[in-house]
Simulated scan of single mutants.
Amino acid sequence: MSDDAGPDPEAVAAAVLTHPSVLRLDGGPFGSIASYLPGARVQGVRLGDPVEIAVVVALGMPFPEIAEGIAARVRAVLGDEARAVDVTVADVGAVGTEVVAGR
């Protein structure tokens, strides 16, 4: 996506997924955290002020540390060091297992 079209939610999603504790993106409560593109929906990323991210994470690292790592990745993609990023841990799972929300 070009700069004049605004931030790219797919690029933000890809950056979030590079965090070692993130198993997958999630729509958050009621599936409301998402961005919409022509013919596509990017679940787990809503660009705004603040940026909202929802993820399913693996056990092991403290949640505040995970959230800060995710926020740093988002800010790097958006090029805005001061931007507020809210991270929701929608569920917790184990690496290598299928995660089912709500269980």
Rank of each mutant, 00 (worst) to 15 (best):
A54E: 04
A101D: 14
I53L: 07
G44D: 00
V55Y: 03
V74R: 03
V57P: 01
A76H: 00
L47T: 10
E65L: 13
V45W: 08
A67F: 00
P50K: 03
G96Y: 08
A76E: 11
R41Y: 00
A84I: 06
V99A: 09
R41Q: 12
V51R: 06
I53Q: 02
T97F: 12
A58F: 10
A40M: 12
V45P: 05
A84C: 02
T97W: 11
G39L: 11
V45S: 08
V100M: 07
G39F: 04
L59Y: 14
V95T: 15
V42C: 00
P64F: 09
V45K: 05
G44R: 00
V100D: 02
G48N: 09
A94I: 13
V42T: 10
V77S: 06
V89I: 15
V77P: 02
G48L: 03
F63A: 15
V87T: 02
D86K: 13
L59K: 15
A90R: 03
A40F: 00
I53N: 07
P64G: 08
R46T: 00
A67S: 12
D91E: 10
G48K: 08
I66S: 06
G60Q: 09
F63S: 15
G69A: 04
L59G: 15
D49S: 12
G96K: 01
A54L: 09
V55M: 07
R83I: 11
E52R: 11
P38D: 09
L78S: 10
G39Q: 12
D91W: 06
V51Q: 10
E98Y: 10
T97R: 15
A72T: 13
G93L: 06
P64R: 05
P64N: 07
E52I: 10
G60I: 03
A40G: 05
R41F: 10
V51T: 08
P50E: 01
D86A: 14
V51Y: 06
R83W: 09
G96P: 09
V42N: 05
E98M: 13
G48P: 08
D80Q: 07
P50L: 03
M61V: 15
A84R: 11
V56D: 04
V87G: 09
G79V: 07
P62V: 12
V56I: 13
P38I: 09
T88E: 12
M61R: 14
L59I: 14
T97E: 14
A71Q: 01
E68R: 14
Q43Y: 02
V55T: 10
V45Q: 09
T97M: 12
A101E: 14
A94Y: 12
A72L: 13
G39M: 12
G93Y: 07
D91V: 04
D86P: 00
R75I: 00
T88W: 09
G48H: 05
L47E: 02
V74P: 02
V45D: 06
V85R: 03
V45R: 08
R41H: 11
